[in-house]
Design a protein around this nucleic acid. Structure first.
Lengths: 234, 234
DNA sequence: CGGCGTATTTGCGCTGGCGCAAACACCGAG
DNA sequence: CTCGGTGTTTGCGCCAGCGCAAATACGCCG
């Protein structure tokens, strides 16, 4: 029997906001706490979706692979977010693979808990609607960007979004809080690692960013914003 | 006072499946029935989202416009589908504009009805989760296609999808059931009307499709599928 | 500290598909 | 029937960004 989990773990999170202390205990009673080391697979695309997850600490990379083997990164999961919620969408399998970008701690619940939370805690339902809704919105935005923007703008937008969501202040700029390769950025923007590298290098020459192995630091967010918004084509 | 609406209007639909006759009457009591003529705007992007809709007949084109004026068509709505469900995603404004592609009939409810349906009819909640979930899924698929496929494959996939969702058998092929321009197809695939036109012409020469003003008829679905799946790049 | 595997950078040539522009077809109105 | 507007086709030239390939750079492990 694992030690009981503390309420404070999930007390502040949107998914469980406005739940009483007792309710939180009930939620935790059904949860399993899991540790994943860097680059470990949390669940895999096409796999039977028996549970859903909440990320307590770390960062998770979500990867989709096409039949032809082409990979895309739909999003990264930040601390406090639900993920693997196939059950909410009425799916029986996970639509993507989740990989720990760094060492992670997560809670997981069996799908049956979903139904219970849903009926017992109205705020839980509303919150997850919002979660899915905003993911839909993000994805649509991405489609718009891919349709209308040049690669340079797309990369700039993506970096800015990453920095906003998972930025960490350091001396000399804001850096993305987890290891991310040029390849990863390419898979988020629909381009190749070569092209990403070229633009990052050129931005580095202009003093907008600094690169590093699996690392990006933005030194001039405003300048990068200008690039992101500059419309080349009409 | 409008005439009461008949239960049969919504009885078979996924959103209201397994509701009793009385429940259906309650749902209809809150609804307004509306007619839109071809090309009329049902609601507009950024507009305050006060109600949600169900399409009873016709086809609705959903259009998103970027700040720079670039347009994208995220999807078409078919008969029986909910749309304009910003309320479900916790949004206060519509994320896109809805335009009647042909003359349409729709029901609409004030957002307050959403809350009521949600709490009174569990199956309603589950069904709309699935709706949003599958839209998210579709959008992700589109991102994958835009990342990994050539324009020709994307157009082929899109046409096949349209034909599958809204195809109508005619002598000599299956045609898309509503008027659609090359420009529309371009906005669905992230390309230009010129390129769409070029490929449709070339397919017409090969006997796979037949074109027409605001009309596409697929004469050889299998042949088109081959194009959609042929991997050019690695 | 040296070696190795992985990540990154960069050059070069090619091409898919876009932009521009003009010519057509089709449909509905009068 | 003719006219005007809207949708479609097609030619031409160009260039952003990809594919290929090779040279580095970095960080970890022993």
């Amino acid at each position: 029997m694992p030690p009981p989990l503390d309420r404070s773990l999930i007390a502040g999170l949107p998914a469980f906001e406005s739940l009483s202390g007792e309710d939180l205990d009930r939620v935790l009673a059904l949860a399993r706490s899991l540790h994943y080391s860097k680059e470990a697979e949390i669940f895999s695309q096409e796999e039977e979706a028996n549970s859903f997850f909440l990320l307590l600490s770390g960062h998770v990379r979500v990867v989709q692979t096409s039949a032809e083997g082409h990979q895309v990164i739909p999003r990264y999961i930040n601390e406090g977010e639900l993920f693997g919620i196939a059950v909410a969408m009425g799916r029986t399998t996970y639509p993507a693979t989740a990989v720990a970008a760094v060492d992670c701690v997560a809670l997981s619940w069996p799908n049956s808990a979903w139904t219970e939370f849903q009926s017992r805690f109205p705020s839980f339902g509303a919150s997850t609607y919002r979660t899915i809704g905003s993911r839909l919105q993000d994805t649509q935005t991405r489609v718009m960007e891919m349709s209308s923007e040049q690669v340079e703008q797309r990369i700039a937008h993506t970096i800015l979004r990453l920095v906003k969501q998972s930025g960490r202040k350091t001396e000399g700029g804001i850096e993305i809080d987890f290891p991310i390769t040029r390849q990863d950025i390419a898979e988020m923007t629909g381009t190749t690692l070569h092209t990403v590298s070229r633009f990052l290098s050129s931005w580095e020459n202009e003093g907008l960013v600094r690169g590093g192995r699996q690392k990006v630091t933005v030194t001039d967010p405003h300048g990068l914003m200008l690039i992101a918004e500059s419309r080349r084509g009409k």
